[in-house]
């Protein structure tokens, strides 16, 4: 190879590396500066900061908890005079009251304050914590003793591990061959109601809520004289795995208690999917769901009690989902 060319290329590479490292050294002080923002000792480019925080469409956070005066003054520098005689101070209080009122009504992160142009450390850490809890819920496992206590045996979908579970929803909708034969062997055939539990996307949801929902639902069905099949647990199942189960056991109704995709408000929310005679080829519109079953949503015990009456309705109309709504009206 041409020596000159090699030299040229080497030079270019070195130049690039230099440029890269120099841009890094440029970045470092800005990183530092960001950290300093929180320690209240701004250094250097104060005017840059001003430019950043002034765009008119910028999202602003304002505090509602502590340091009341300082934060309010940054949000509303001039108190509105349109209110007439009322002094500005009680107005601030009433605004605080209002935000407190709004916060009571929603678990969303509203009125949480800000530090400069960013969320406050506490808010940010809470957000990180909630996000981590959501991730943990997906990758967590349901403790064996819970299933033992409730007398549930365990089967598998066709999914090998969590990564595959996430990448291949289709495999989560099918039972493995061993599972099929285990179910055939151990379950009551053609029950009126077949209950199935599955971790789905939140093992935490099952851990926290399954016992209360299940026992309450069992009692509700007993009170209503509705026969139950042999309940079992599907590891890494998707909702539509109930079609496979429907084919195998021929129940009138399948109730699937499955962990919901975790969110930042709750990572332990459970859903109860119900379907009248689910079989291969069942359309999604015929499935119905009661979601948001957790401590902060509908209490699990009350949800279980309510599910009994829905199952009663499904059996009466011999339909579920959209078909049920149509028949009912």
């Amino acid at each position: 190879m041409n020596e000159e060319l090699i030299q040229q290329i080497t030079k270019m590479v070195v130049e690039k590396l230099e440029a890269a490292s120099s841009s890094q050294t440029v970045q470092q002080p800005t990183n530092k500066q960001k950290v300093e923002l929180f320690s209240k000792q701004p250094i250097g480019h104060v005017e840059v900061e001003k430019v950043k925080s002034s765009p008119s469409g910028a999202v602003t956070f304002h505090s509602t908890t502590e340091e009341l005066k300082r934060n309010v003054s940054t949000v509303k520098p001039t108190p509105k005079t349109a209110y007439g005689k009322t002094k500005s101070k009680p107005k601030i209080d009433s605004e605080e009251d209002k935000l407190a009122e709004y916060r009571k009504k929603t678990p969303a992160r509203i009125g949480v304050g800000r530090a400069g142009s960013r969320p406050r450390t506490k808010t940010w850490l809470q957000f990180r914590l909630d996000h981590a809890a959501a991730v943990d819920a997906v990758y967590g496992e349901v403790p064996d003793n819970l299933l033992e206590q409730l007398g549930l045996f365990q089967v598998q979908s066709r999914v090998a591990d969590k990564e595959e579970y996430i990448r291949r929803p289709d495999l989560g909708r099918k039972l493995s061959d061993e599972s099929k034969s285990l179910i055939q062997e151990r379950c009551k055939k053609s029950p009126v109601v077949q209950i199935v539990a599955s971790n789905g996307l939140s093992a935490k949801a099952i851990e926290e809520n399954l016992e209360d929902v299940y026992l309450s639902l069992e009692q509700s069905l007993n009170n209503l004289n509705i026969e139950m099949g042999t309940t079992f647990y599907v590891d890494k199942g998707r909702v539509a795995v109930m079609d496979d189960i429907g084919e195998l056991l021929q129940p009138d109704v399948v109730v699937m208690l499955i962990g919901e995709r975790p969110g930042l408000v709750s990572a332990e929310s459970l859903s109860a999917y119900m379907c009248y005679k689910p079989r291969h080829g069942t359309i999604e519109a015929d499935r119905m769901v009661i979601s948001n079953i957790h401590k902060g949503g509908i209490p699990p015990v009350e949800a279980g009690a309510f599910l009994g009456t829905i199952i009663q309705k499904i059996l009466k109309y011999e339909a579920s989902g959209v078909s049920l709504v149509q028949k009912e009206n």
């Binding site: 509700s220 007993n222 509908i298 209490p299 009350e302 009690a305």
Partner: peptide, 14 residues
């Protein structure tokens, strides 16, 4: 006060 009427009612029935 809380949303528990149905389950308490059903438990009493049971």
């Amino acid at each position: 006060q809380s949303d528990h009427a149905k389950v308490i009612g059903q438990t009493l029935a049971a």
